[in-house]
Write a protein that binds this DNA or RNA. Structure first.
Length: 582
RNA sequence: GCGCCCGUAGCUCAAUUGGAUAGAGCAUCAGCCUUCUAAGCUGAGGGUUGGAGGUUCGAGUCCUCCCGGGCGCGCCA
């Protein structure tokens, strides 16, 4: 419809000879939906935009344009109003057309076919497997998964991936923490070092691993002489010394096998939590395997070959400042180990190598410095910097009894995602997470979400869906059937204010998909669904659907059936179920 | 100090990227179940959009400066 109106305006401007054809093709004619029905359904601000350029009064200009718009099928009237808007009023049969479309297209209604479908790889959560996911990760999971679905609906190809950071010092610290717990289970009295991981999950892993035949721990106890601290060292030095001790005493291969086991148990558990949350990835990408394949080395070689590295202070630096970064970055440390950043370059280069044209990363807001750095890294690998896009998700603050809950992975004091799922349910949690703009801080009120009350908007939407299905059920119980064709044929009979509003709302769905995909703002869809549900409830209270008049009945049933399709589709993008009964 | 994000009703947040009268939910108040689910509906009150300038037909949205908050600024991950 928008396109047709655009065309009308275009033709009219041409007919009035206001501008030359060349100028006309440069002008972007924006058609927008109106908020207020007094202004019709669509409006155009072209007269306001052109008035200065043409030196004409905007309202006069608007009149000139409308004068040249002939009676057009589907339009009831076209109006020019101060200060210069042009408003379009759709005719009744045109309005009802959308209901027919929804019924015919079903789940495909609202799907976009973009002119340039992108082949996108979407990376999200990618939390280090050093502990269970907590409520902060939950937001990224909910946002990322919904974003993937939304972008697909908008016509893109989306491949989702979790980058498993299963290499490096953090994993060794985790292995050490678990090892100490295992030794505790076997009777040794060792305590966790100052900066090791904490939390009950360590004991669970310890229990699962303690009898593993792959890692022989018993002779460690027989050896004796185990120590768990270096009081005179800093906490950082201490833990590195302890890791070195145990690597020596256990044998490096044994220690690595332990790390492997711990890591894979952690990943399995994270995967399970996410599945429970309705989030399933196309792929899990292991950093360790990437390193084993030599991809990091290869990337560094490439950077060297491009003459973009230099040695300083024993380390190898990458000239990221050549590509807009604040400062150069280290890729190989003085001690010869490659940095996290080096892995990231290799990983993102690999994404390009696999053929994706847009690398979309969902990261916590504390990573905002990464765009410049990673983009520079890609550029240094001869890849376009613009192929990387980062969506930052702001923090979640958890509130319990009106007090902010402090959380820290290290101290082991956090509420996990799976605990949240158990307590408030997947649907409520997922909806709550995406109902706010991702670049806005989110206050998650646990008590509110926990208490099974009706304050959660997700119930409001689900209830609207369930009510519609209850009506259809009732129809059957009364021995009646819904005649879809008759409904479509009689859509013109839907002329109450409630019906007009709900129809208009349904017609917004495709552009909501398009816009929120473009802006990557999943919350717009969530808001839309609340508004749609609002209309359903008002309609439900104001009118009966199962009425004696057969034609009106079918028309109304057609409308609510179409509405339930859209609610169902929208909720599925958000990863929320649409129950038929509540 | 430098960089990024943000400040909207008592609280939590929207606002079709510059559009017309700034909207929802919760909370408060007043109504609505003999009829398809009251997890619902109808109505009321509640605002100098942190502040001050500027840009233009038009600003919550853009530019500058203040005030206030969050997060970054490692050979950590």
């Amino acid at each position: 419809m928008k396109k047709e109106i655009q065309k009308l305006i275009c033709q009219s401007i041409e007919a009035a000879k206001l501008v030359t054809p060349d100028e006309l093709s440069d002008i972007q004619i924006e058609i927008s939906r109106t908020k207020n029905p007094d202004y019709g359904q669509f409006s155009c601000n072209i007269a306001l935009r052109l008035s200065k350029k043409l030196g004409l009064n905007a309202l006069d200009l608007a009149h000139q344009i409308t004068d040249n718009i002939k009676n057009q099928e589907g339009l009831e009237k076209v109006e020019a109003v101060p200060p210069g808007f042009i408003n379009f009023f759709l005719s009744e049969d045109m309005k009802a057309e959308v209901v027919k479309q929804v019924l015919q297209q079903g789940a495909k209604y609202g799907s976009q076919t973009t002119q340039e479908p992108k082949n996108i790889i979407l990376e999200f959560v990618s939390s280090n497997p050093t502990g269970p996911l907590h409520v902060g990760h939950g937001r990224q999971a909910a946002y990322g998964d919904s974003l993937a679905k939304l972008l697909r609906k908008a016509g893109h190809q989306v491949y989702t991936e979790y980058y498993v950071n299963d290499s490096g010092r953090q994993m060794n610290i985790l292995a050490l923490s678990v090892l100490i717990k295992i030794l505790n289970l076997k009777g040794a009295s060792l305590t966790l070092p100052r900066i090791s991981y904490q939390g009950s999950y360590l004991e669970q892993i310890a229990k699962e691993i303690q009898n593993s035949t792959e890692v022989n721990i018993d002779n460690l106890l027989e050896q004796g002489g185990l120590r768990d601290s270096y009081p005179s060292c800093s906490a950082d030095e201490e833990i590195d010394k302890l890791i070195a001790d145990f690597q020596h005493q256990l044998g490096i291969e044994n220690f690595d096998r332990l790390t492997d086991s711990v890591s894979s148990l952690m990943v399995t558990s994270i995967k399970k939590d996410l599945e429970q949350f309705g989030v399933v990835y196309n792929n899990w990408f292991s950093e360790r395997e990437m390193i084993k394949k030599g991809l990091v080395q290869k990337s560094i070689q490439q950077l060297n070959d491009n003459n973009l590295t230099y040695k300083k202070g024993g380390a190898l630096w990458l000239k990221t400042t050549n590509f807009g970064d604040d400062k150069d970055r280290v890729v190989i440390r003085e001690d010869g180990r490659s940095t996290y950043f080096a892995s990231d370059i290799a990983y993102h280069f690999d994404k390009r190598f696999r053929g994706f044209d847009l690398l979309l990363d969902v990261l916590g807001s504390d990573h905002h410095g990464y765009l410049a750095r990673l983009g520079a890294g890609l550029a240094a690998m001869n890849e376009p910097q613009e192929s990387l896009e980062i969506s930052l998700v702001q923090f979640v603050s958890l509130f319990k009894e009106n007090k902010k809950v402090q959380m820290s992975t290290r101290s082991g004091e956090f509420i996990t995602l799976s605990e949240l799922c158990e307590e408030v349910g997947k649907d409520a949690a997922r909806f709550f997470y995406v109902s706010r703009s991702h670049d806005q801080h989110l206050d998650f009120n646990l008590d509110l979400a926990k208490s099974k009350n009706n304050e959660n908007p997700v119930y409001y939407i689900q209830y609207a869906h369930a009510r519609i299905h209850r009506v259809l059920e009732e129809l059957k119980n009364n021995g009646l059937t819904f005649d879809k064709q008759s409904g479509i044929d009689n859509l013109v009979k839907l002329s109450t204010q409630h019906e007009t509003e709900i129809i208009t709302k349904l017609s917004d769905y495709p552009s909501v998909i398009k816009q929120s995909a473009k802006k990557k703002s999943v919350h717009s869809l969530a808001n839309y669904l609340v508004e749609l549900a609002q209309h359903v409830h008002s309609y439900y209270n104001a009118h009966r659907f199962i009425v004696d008049n057969l034609e009106l009945r079918n028309a109304r049933l057609a409308l609510i059936t179409a509405t339930s399709f859209v609610i169902n589709d929208g909720l599925s993008i958000l990863g929320v179920s649409a129950p038929k009964k509540m």
